[in-house]
Amino acid sequence: MTEPILRIRNLTKKYADKVIFQHIDLEVKSGDTIVIIGPSGTGKSTLLRCINLLTRPNEGQIFLNGEEITAKGINEDHVRQRIGMVFQNFLLFNHLTALENVKLGLTKVRHMKAEEAEVKAISHLKRVGLSEHMDKYPGQLSGGQQQRVGIARALAMDPEIMLFDEPTSALDPELIGEVLEVMRDLSKSGMTMVVVTHEMGFAREVADSIIFMERGSIVEEGSPEELFEHAHFPRTREFLGKISELYGKKEKKGE
């Protein structure tokens, strides 16, 4: 069996006495899209932040392509260059245009020449359908456009894996569709993705595997069909029922 691109072993994160999540084990195969669902305050976002070392876990190990990134003495900046992250509230650099947002990492981190970086940044902005808005500042873009720039910014770094932290939950319903479409294409193109979301339609259609997390633990993991049709645990069924009812309408409207 080939080594999974991401392997998490017995990961625990706590702040003081408060356990955010504990004993998480997770494997993500190359090219797969994993969707993590669960009630808020369950540690999903913190788990993503641990994966790209924005937060340090207290216990456990994370392996990226076989290399332990939680090892002592590892260069965190180098690890983060290999992992793309998309945030709930976009977090574009406010003082830079869309194009400059995407270019910055290429020139400062990858040390590409300005012209070369520009060509690459433009191609990524085209990929997310923003070739007409490249010179606009974040404050001049809609939420959906901002989030697509956020995706282009992460993709331009050629990450080995992409993490999405509730990428559509700060968006107006009518803007969700355009972001999900980009993510769907990305998943089809073979990018490895870990997505925290409440968009059940997306999960059902795109995910290779869905993970249901609650109170800091993984309750259940399986294919969309397994979870949606034959969930083992009543808690999973209950959550999926509620969330599908709540978000299903919004999502249809958005597409």
Partner: peptide, 12 residues
């Protein structure tokens, strides 16, 4: 968040 986003693309 601005700093976090900067660190996330690998800036020191």
């Amino acid at each position: 968040g601005q700093l976090m986003a900067a660190r996330a693309i690998g800036l020191s």
